[in-house]
Design a protein around this nucleic acid. Structure first.
Lengths: 139, 139
DNA sequence: CGGGATCCTGCAAGATACTG
DNA sequence: CAGTATCTTGCAGGATCCCG
């Protein structure tokens, strides 16, 4: 598999240069991806631009506060843009920037991996938990 | 760009079937990737198997507690395996399972994206913050 | 060496209420 | 409609000590 070569080599590169986790680009960006909602919002915006409440309706289990914050972060990072239409009442549309669109491919690959291997992972978890229960509380 | 088609279509698929965030495979898996340390540990194990304190030495800013927990989670999900050698004192080696190795490619793609676009993102942030400061506190 | 057990703290994030 | 403001809490995660 060719995919892992870049990862391991880049790791030894970072190591060699003295690794600073706080300034690490990868951490910095992956922290966002790992955000509870970022990936979901990105995905929702992938299809087409959407308005605030439209997003909220699509993802009912995110609070307005968190949706606002997630969108702000995306805007701040230049992944999404915000367009206000001064209608009555006001409507605000969010859309992916070119940069935002460019992350869809790698992100999509990861999502696809997650989808394909979820069953396997669930089985692994079940086995692990069963084994752990035997060890600690075989009542 | 062909990469975003899968993402947006899979999103509408989820939508159509009634979307449950708690059971969402993607969330479930990406939560792990988003963990503070998971990606880093995965990357460290990509090159070769490593022992506990070896990992700790490589990543000094992770506490033993968190390293243990991260490794346990990886083991639980079937991404890594744990091998105990009953020497004196004991030594424990962690290595990626085939499943763990299979995530390196998509994860690597994302890491590469992060690396390539980090400068752009930093600039976007700086611009956004400067603009925000003008709006709120132009003293 | 490779952890487990415990204590403690800050901040992420939900709930609720208000506004232009 | 599209947010902000404030309060409150859970729990991730660091520090510390102990153990086989």
């Amino acid at each position: 598999m060719a995919g892992d070569a870049p990862l391991s080599t880049s790791f030894s590169d970072w190591q060699a240069r003295g690794f600073d986790a706080a300034a690490c680009p990868v951490r910095n960006v992956l922290d966002r991806i790992g955000d509870k909602w970022t990936t979901l919002v990105l995905t929702a915006l992938a299809a087409k631009p959407r308005r605030f409440n439209e997003l909220h309706r699509i993802m009912p289990d995110i609070s307005k506060r968190m949706l606002t914050q997630t969108l702000r972060d995306l805007e701040r990072d230049g992944l999404a843009t915000r367009h206000v239409f001064p209608t009555k009442p006001p409507s605000v549309e969010y859309r992916l920037s070119p940069l935002g669109q460019s992350v869809l491919a790698p992100l999509g690959a990861l999502v696809e991996w997650a989808d394909r291997n979820y069953a396997t992972i669930r089985e692994a978890r079940a086995r692990f938990d069963a084994a752990a229960e035997l060890r600690s509380g075989p009542n």
